[in-house]
């Protein structure tokens, strides 16, 4: 599968998908006017990847803020990779939040409640 790299805009996040390395990153701000249009191709890509994944897969979120419509797509991303775990391979999520951003940390906690994937929540200095 080809790599995907999408530069961020004022309303959409940076996307780095490196399927050969099992590395998937979503970072920045996510408030697209049409979140389906933005995320649907990415979710299709992840679904195809989950059929034949790398030995280990890491999904990284480094977000500043997002709309609720994006949240539902982030959860769908996480759910796509639950299949990898069910198939006996390694898949994890790293959820970064700015050190003082308790709100983003709590959003990560919401995902922990809703997902079977191991989710590690970590404070960091985000750009």
């Amino acid at each position: 599968m080809e790599r995907i790299e999408i530069e961020p805009t004022s309303t959409t996040p940076r996307i780095i998908f490196r399927p050969d390395e099992g590395y998937f990153e979503v970072s920045g701000k996510s408030l697209p006017e049409n979140s389906f249009e933005f995320y649907k191709p990415l979710l299709d890509f992840m679904e195809a990847y989950a059929e034949d994944p790398a030995p280990s897969t890491l999904l990284v979120f480094k977000l500043q803020y997002f709309n609720t419509s994006s949240t539902s797509h982030f959860l769908r991303m996480v759910k796509k990779f639950e299949k990898i775990l069910e198939d006996g391979k390694d898949a994890r999520v790293s959820w970064y939040h700015d050190f003082e951003d308790d709100d983003m940390r709590d959003a990560g906690e919401d995902f922990k409640v809703l997902s079977k994937l191991p989710i590690k929540i970590m404070g960091a200095h985000l750009e």
Binding site: N34, S35, F36, E37, N67, T68, S69, T71, S72, L75, R76, D110, V113, L114
Partner: peptide, 23 residues
């Protein structure tokens, strides 16, 4: 309710289901 709606995925391209208002 927020988590219930999020999990059920009853979201359209216009948000919907009241998730934004609940937030």
């Amino acid at each position: 309710l927020y988590l219930d709606i999020l999990e059920k995925g009853e979201i359209t391209d216009k948000g919907g289901a009241g998730l934004g208002i609940l937030r």
